[in-house]
């Protein structure tokens, strides 16, 4: 499988946020400002890559050999939850600067369905370890791209005059819809 295809399709064509609807909650939550959306992207990329590697190994060395695939959901979510906790503790000790930048977003990530979604998708798509890592990183980039674009638009929207009825969340969703429409233009390029 060509890595470039994985990268392009994960970032543009099947954008995790705008085409697959994974991670919409933080998308609406932290996309008010450009700076916070960069922080969130960093945290997501970090955890998504780690989580994908760990869950991949669990699947291949524990779940598949013993034929207990039905424990997938339960074991993945536990791994992700503890991974987030661990990353938080380690970052605090090792790199306080990085912790300052990402710290606030880490707890939010456990319930970010993009993380669990990607972990399950790489198993469904039967990727090998390197492909899985590439897939995870590109999905995180796709998530970041959508988040940063959206935050940029929302900063401008604060200055625009929007009818009272759709101010706030409805307007944000409609903008997300238009952004998603724009991303649909990428389909068919690979």
């Amino acid at each position: 499988m060509d890595y470039i295809i994985i990268v392009v399709s994960a970032i543009f064509i099947n954008n995790i946020l705008l085409a697959q609807f994974l991670g919409v909650c933080p998308f609406l939550g932290v996309s008010n400002k450009l700076s916070t959306s960069f922080g969130m992207t960093g945290a997501v990329m970090f955890v998504m890559t780690l989580a994908t590697i760990v869950t991949y190994l669990i699947n291949h060395y524990i779940l598949s050999p013993y034929n207990i695939g039905f424990l997938q959901t339960i074991s993945y979510i536990l791994v992700i939850a503890s991974l987030v906790q661990m990353v938080e503790i380690i970052l605090k000790k090792v790199s306080p600067a990085l912790f300052q930048a990402l710290g606030v977003y880490l707890p939010l990530i456990t319930t970010n369905c993009a993380i669990l979604g990607v972990a399950i998708l790489v198993i469904q798509k039967e990727y090998n370890l390197i492909e899985s890592v590439v897939f995870a990183v590109s999905n995180a980039i796709g998530f970041g791209l959508a988040l940063v674009l959206f935050a940029g638009i929302r900063e401008h929207m604060d200055l625009a005059e929007i009818p009272a009825g759709i101010r706030g969340v409805p307007a944000a969703l409609i903008v997300a819809g238009l952004l998603s429409l724009a991303f649909m233009g990428f389909t068919g390029i690979v």
């Binding site: 705008l18 085409a19 609807f21 759709i166 969340v169 409805p170 307007a171 944000a172 969703l173 409609i174 997300a176 819809g177 238009l178 998603s180 429409l181 649909m184």
Partner: peptide, 10 residues
């Protein structure tokens, strides 16, 4: 997908 966002917004 875009329709999902727009419909929910309205």
């Amino acid at each position: 997908p875009p329709g999902a966002f727009i419909a929910l917004g309205y």
